[in-house]
Amino acid sequence: MESEAAIFAGAVFSLFGGGLLVWTATCVHNHRPVAHGVRPVPSATLAGVVAVLALAIGTWCFGRL
């Protein structure tokens, strides 16, 4: 039972982190804002940090199996 929860949590965190990282990279590459109404550099930095943290948590969840 615990392994099913770890698989689900790992998948959710990994998909969210990967999607956010792709979104951020695409916006930065096309010189578009990551978030509307916010300065580009801090928003891209914060989004990148959150994406990497989500991927790290997803990896940690998969490592708990």
Rank of each mutant, 00 (worst) to 15 (best):
G17N: 07
G63D: 12
G58V: 02
S43C: 04
T26Y: 13
G10R: 03
R32D: 12
V34L: 06
V41Y: 05
H29P: 03
I7T: 10
H29D: 08
C27H: 15
E4N: 07
N30T: 13
G19D: 08
P40Q: 07
G58I: 00
N30R: 15
N30V: 09
A6Y: 12
G10C: 06
P40I: 05
G10S: 04
A56W: 11
V38P: 01
F8H: 06
G17I: 05
G37N: 01
V50I: 13
L55M: 10
V52D: 01
L53K: 03
A5T: 09
F16Y: 15
F13G: 00
A11D: 12
A35V: 15
G37P: 01
E4S: 07
G19H: 13
T45H: 02
R64P: 01
V41M: 04
A51I: 01
H29R: 15
I57L: 13
I7P: 00
G19P: 11
V49H: 00
V34F: 09
A44I: 03
V22N: 03
H36T: 13
L46H: 04
R32T: 09
P42N: 02
G19S: 13
T45V: 15
A25E: 07
T24R: 05
W23L: 13
V50E: 00
A44N: 04
V22T: 13
V41F: 07
V52L: 15
E4P: 00
A11V: 14
A56V: 11
G17C: 06
I57V: 15
P33M: 06
G37W: 10
I57T: 11
T59G: 14
H31V: 12
V38H: 10
A44W: 06
A56I: 07
P42S: 01
W60V: 14
V34K: 00
E4F: 12
L65K: 04
G10D: 01
P33K: 10
V28R: 13
R64Q: 15
G10I: 08
V38R: 08
W60Q: 09
I57C: 08
P33F: 09
A9L: 11
F16D: 02
L15Y: 13
H36A: 13
E4A: 08
T26N: 08
P33A: 11
E2R: 07
E2H: 05
T59R: 10
A5S: 04
L21Y: 14
R39S: 11
W23V: 05
L46N: 02
G18W: 10
G37L: 02
L53Y: 08
L46A: 12
V34S: 02
S14V: 06
